[in-house]
């Protein structure tokens, strides 16, 4: 009995934090099923008859185009980052050469560089390359800013792989390309998971480059689309809540399916970073 009493403050604190973190999501979700009039009269009550009007409106407005854009940009960027970051990490982790440390530090320093410091040159560069307002124009900066953490994670991970593995392969006259591709890369699966999860979340939610380097709704990614929708329908609050719900849904769904994996991946990435 005394044990239970002792636990009451713990429960109260746990529930308080649960309400603070969870309530905004809950309200967002519920409000998205309300009619506009209903929201005006009683903004925070339980919805009377779960209306799907807001979601219908989103489909009519081709809201899913934004998903598609975000998906393309995120997947392309993450796949390229995995390959070129793993490649760059191979000599940094496994070979000794004079510029090894400086190059590693140059990549690592990238984690503290404010994106805004590169914004104007990247804007003019993207214009000059004819990539302004195209999804391809976003891929370059996304890759560049994902590289520092990815190179650090891969390098740390590869340093822990026993040297004997490739010693024997080297004796067999294996080239570096085959060594990397056939022996090292297959062992990287946990690091690949970490790098993909971390970067996917970052790129999927990225805002400032998308805001600066694209302008039309054909190239808008999800965060840009959400903001556009908010600007246009700011009085239709259930509609906005439906857009926010849909916009958050993909990551939340993936999270609930692969929770442990995502949490472990994020932690590993940041701790090493």
């Amino acid at each position: 009995m005394t044990k239970l009493v002792k636990k009451i403050p713990l429960y109260l604190l746990a529930i308080l934090i649960l309400v603070i973190t969870g309530l905004p999501f809950f309200i967002m979700f519920l409000t998205s099923f309300k009619g506009q009039m209903e929201f005006m009269t009683s903004p925070w009550s339980w919805p009377e008859n779960f209306s799907l009007d807001s979601y219908k409106l989103l489909i009519e407005l081709e809201f899913f185009g934004y998903f598609w854009n975000s998906m393309i940009v995120s997947v392309i960027s993450v796949v390229i980052v995995i390959f070129i970051a793993a490649m760059a990490s191979y000599p940094l982790a496994r070979l000794t050469f004079r510029l090894n440390r400086p190059i590693f530090i140059i990549f690592m320093v990238g984690m503290m560089i404010p994106i805004h410091t590169t914004l104007v040159p990247i804007f003019t560069l993207t214009n000059d390359l004819g990539l302004y307002d195209s999804l391809l124009g976003l891929v370059g900066p996304y890759i560049a800013f994902a590289l520092p953490i990815s190179v650090v994670i891969f390098t740390q991970f590869m340093r822990d792989i026993p040297k004997e593995l490739e010693e024997s392969a080297k004796i067999d006259g294996c080239s570096h390309i085959r060594l990397f591709w056939n022996i090292i890369f297959p062992l990287l699966t946990p690091a690949v998971a970490t790098v993909s999860i971390y970067n996917f979340i970052q790129i999927w939610n990225e805002f400032i480059f998308a805001l600066t380097l694209t302008s039309s709704s054909q190239t808008a990614t999800l965060p840009i689309g959400l903001r556009e929708f908010y600007g246009e329908f700011s009085v239709n609050i259930p509609g906005i809540m439906a857009a926010l719900t849909l916009g958050s849904l993909p990551l939340l769904l993936v999270y609930f399916v692969a929770q442990e994996k995502i949490v472990a991946g994020l932690a590993a990435g940041s701790v090493k970073g």
Binding site: T21, P24, I201, W204, N205, F207, G247, S248, Y255
Partner: peptide, 11 residues
Amino acid sequence: YFMPFLMSTVA
């Protein structure tokens, strides 16, 4: 507890 971190900052 972890949900807020997955939402985009714009949202």
